[in-house]
């Protein structure tokens, strides 16, 4: 999975990455946009910046994110 700026995503599961903090459990099920993907090397392991509706902007591991269905249709 690779994300680009403006992609609409869902936080669909917890990440097992060490960067996942307990307060991020509140983000499960939230939708939002990728606001700053890994700006250098498209590293699937990089933390990327997302803005979630009602939850603010955070940097999360990519394995907890998925593109929303309507977004996948356009890719």
């Amino acid at each position: 999975m690779e994300f680009q700026r403006g992609d609409k995503i869902e936080v669909f599961r917890k990440s097992s990455d060490e960067a996942w903090e307990p307060y991020m459990d509140d983000f499960l099920g939230c939708h939002g946009y990728i606001t700053d993907p890994d700006t250098t090397v498209n590293d699937p392991d990089a933390l990327i910046e997302i803005s979630l509706e009602g939850k603010g902007t955070h940097r999360l591991p990519q394995d907890c994110l998925r593109l929303l269905a309507d977004q996948e249709d356009t890719r």
């Binding site: 700026r5 403006g6 939002g32 946009y33 606001t35 700053d36 910046e49 803005s51 509706e53 902007t57």
Partner: peptide, 8 residues
């Protein structure tokens, strides 16, 4: 700024 505000 990379302006996440404008994204939302």
């Amino acid at each position: 700024c990379t302006r996440p505000c404008e994204m939302m």
